[in-house]
Nucleic acid binder design. Structure first.
Lengths: 116, 116
DNA sequence: ATTATATATGAATATATATTCATATGTTCA
DNA sequence: TGAACATATGAATATATATTCATATATAAT
């Protein structure tokens, strides 16, 4: 390989420090779940309070089926869990770790507003 | 509106706490930049050392044009900057804030490995 | 029992976006 | 000056994914 500004040893050392390809793929996939406004909305609402699908639909202004589909994604990524209460499904965040990640998002969001 | 488990006042209070729709859109867009393995790779490498396009291409194993396109995205989102050195373009992270966000990603990545 | 309600899901559609290909621009070196 | 190199970019292609529509299932209410 012909490097421009680094040599082979430096290249190897850099590669050692990074997550391997599969980890990178998994990390990107995990992050991508937060990269959709509908899912972000759902997560932010659930951060405040456990909610049923119908109420999430009204709060976000999205159709019930859209919410159900996104909840399925969030379930598969283990970001949310739910239990049944009669005919309703009550969703909540899976753990506080998720809530912390959302906090970082809110913080960044606030900073953006300040900087523009 | 007909709520299932909350009343109108609770709904209003919840909505007050959340970022408005446009902020949510912007935040999702910002997060999405990190949700791609190629861009993540570029960012992680630049976190270690400023690098030219060619070396980034070799390090990531991606074609030069793919890297250039993604660098353009990262530039537009102001995550990276560059200067010209002869015919080369040397890219680096725009500020330490970005580096901190990547740290969180790495931490999560490590936790995933532990949990599986 | 029949009707209304809450949710889930497969299929279709629309849209976003990552990569490649072809090629242009500018720089270095012989 | 001409050839090789580094980078950027528009267009084409491929692929992922968000939403809607139609509909199924299960529970509650009358």
């Amino acid at each position: 390989m012909e490097w421009c500004r680094i040599d082979q040893d430096t290249a190897n050392a850099l590669k050692e420090k990074l997550p391997v390809e599969e980890e990178m793929q998994d990390l990107a996939e995990f992050i991508r779940v937060f990269g959709d406004p509908t899912r972000l909305g759902i997560l932010f609402y659930l951060r405040e309070k456990p909610l049923c699908v119908h109420d999430l639909s009204l709060l976000t202004g999205m159709q019930q089926t859209a919410i159900s589909h996104q909840l399925k994604v969030l379930r598969q990524m283990r970001l949310v869990r739910y239990y049944k209460e009669g005919r309703m499904a009550i969703y909540s965040l899976n753990d506080s770790h998720i809530s912390q990640i959302l906090d970082i998002g809110l913080k960044h969001s606030a900073e953006e507003v300040r900087n523009d």
